[in-house]
Design a protein around this nucleic acid. Structure first.
Lengths: 120, 120
DNA sequence: TTCTAATATAAGTCAATACTTATATAACGG
DNA sequence: CCGTTATATAAGTATTGACTTATATTAGAA
């Protein structure tokens, strides 16, 4: 399944958002998604399978538990495709470095603002 | 329709790739896509409608012709969603500026390589 | 007005996807 | 081995998205 097809599903996108911050057990995903979308354990498990098989998630076993985490492969593929259009709204790399340098210069030269006045 | 749902279709992705470099007339898109995917004018037009209505393409009339170009709104929404995961594989902004500066320094200090030797 | 060119929309069809229920598989403890 | 926990997979169903053919709409010229 193609990466954008994977992400077309709101449940799968949500799963990735949940996995982003930290690894989760299948059962935990089932609980969270079940609560949010009202779908069964089997449905969630099928979504996890799609994510696994398409390079969006990795799984490791811990006894009966299956722990899932984000795999960046699929996400990078999406990023790469979007990358061709990014110049439409992003500055060039050199311009970016200049902007960063300017930011540093301005912070270094900024006048010290004294705190004062009456309390509101 | 959600942005990822829009991009789930390979025809619509291809249309955007074609529109990226420059504006095209509906008929031109129909020809190119028809040749590549073997689908009808009506099908292509329906895809263009989806792109228009979801913030991925804009259209202007020129007599009977309809000229299409990329609208970055939808693309930026995709980029924003992926953005939350980008730290997984991208260096921080400061590190990026350092890298750029290092690149410049190394190019400035690089030894001059003389051309020489026999022709092959 | 009619005709032509260009393209959008309407209506119908069918295959695939996301869901469900049922059950198989993986793992552990007594 | 049996029973329990945890989760993956199988099989069936209904909805919807992408397709088609047909036709409506937009625009211009004679």
């Amino acid at each position: 399944m193609h990466v954008f097809e994977v992400l077309a599903d709101p449940v799968r996108r949500r799963i990735l958002e949940l996995l982003g911050p930290k690894e989760m057990a299948s059962g935990e995903v089932v609980e969270a998604i079940g609560a949010e979308f009202g779908i069964t354990q089997a449905a969630v498990s099928q979504h996890l399978k799609v994510l696994r098989e398409s390079g969006f998630a990795t799984v490791r076993a811990e006894a009966q538990r299956r722990l899932y985490s984000v795999d960046v492969t699929g996400l990078q593929a999406v990023d790469a495709w979007i990358g061709r259009f990014r110049t439409f709204w992003e500055p060039k790399l050199d311009a970016l470095a200049t902007e960063i340098a300017r930011g540093k210069r301005e912070r270094r030269n900024a006048p010290v603002i004294k705190r004062g006045g009456k309390r509101a």
